[in-house]
Computed example of a mutant assay.
Amino acid sequence: MRQARHPEPGEMVLTDVVAALGDPIRVGVVRVLADGRERGWGELRVPVAKSTLSHHLRVLRDAGVTRTRQEGTRCYVTLRREDLDSRFPGLLQALLAAAIADDVGNQVGLADRAT
């Protein structure tokens, strides 16, 4: 099974990170992951097909915004907050504040475990 490549903090490019954060679904994923917890892909509630979610998660990973870990057939994702904060100080905090203020990404959440 092929391991996903994650750019080192020094390899992160501002334009790639900003482009990755230019989609409301991806901003919503970042908002959900901002609590610092690792989430399984199946825990994410998004208004797109699984293949489209996979694409969005790959864009975030390739830009260095998230880290993906595979365990068997399951994939887990976390926000690379420390790496982003060290490489681009204040960027993530500003993005999250603006996203909350403008309600960007609100259509992304966590799946209800009761169902």
Rank of each mutant, 00 (worst) to 15 (best):
R39S: 02
T66N: 09
Q70I: 06
G36V: 09
L60R: 13
R58L: 14
L57S: 05
V48M: 10
L53T: 00
T68L: 15
V65S: 08
T52S: 15
P47F: 10
T68N: 04
S51D: 14
R67F: 06
L44T: 00
A49M: 11
T66W: 13
V32A: 03
G40Y: 01
T52L: 14
T68G: 04
L33E: 04
G64T: 00
L57A: 06
A34D: 14
D62F: 06
G42R: 11
L53W: 02
G64M: 01
L57N: 05
G64V: 00
R67G: 03
G40S: 10
S54R: 14
L33K: 04
V48W: 03
G64D: 01
V48L: 12
R69D: 14
A63P: 11
A34Y: 12
T66L: 03
Q70E: 13
S51W: 14
R45A: 15
G42V: 00
R39D: 03
G36C: 07
V32F: 03
A49V: 09
K50S: 15
T66Q: 09
L33R: 03
L53I: 00
L60N: 09
E38I: 05
A34V: 07
T66V: 15
P47G: 11
P47Q: 07
T52G: 05
H56K: 11
V46P: 07
R37N: 13
V48C: 05
V32K: 03
R37K: 14
W41K: 09
V46S: 05
T52K: 13
R45M: 07
D62A: 11
E38P: 01
V32T: 11
R58C: 12
T68A: 12
L57T: 00
D62H: 10
W41M: 13
V46E: 04
E38G: 02
A63G: 05
D35G: 04
R61D: 01
R37M: 13
L53F: 02
E38L: 02
D62Q: 13
D35Q: 07
G42E: 05
V48G: 02
R67P: 01
R61P: 01
P47K: 06
R67I: 00
V59N: 10
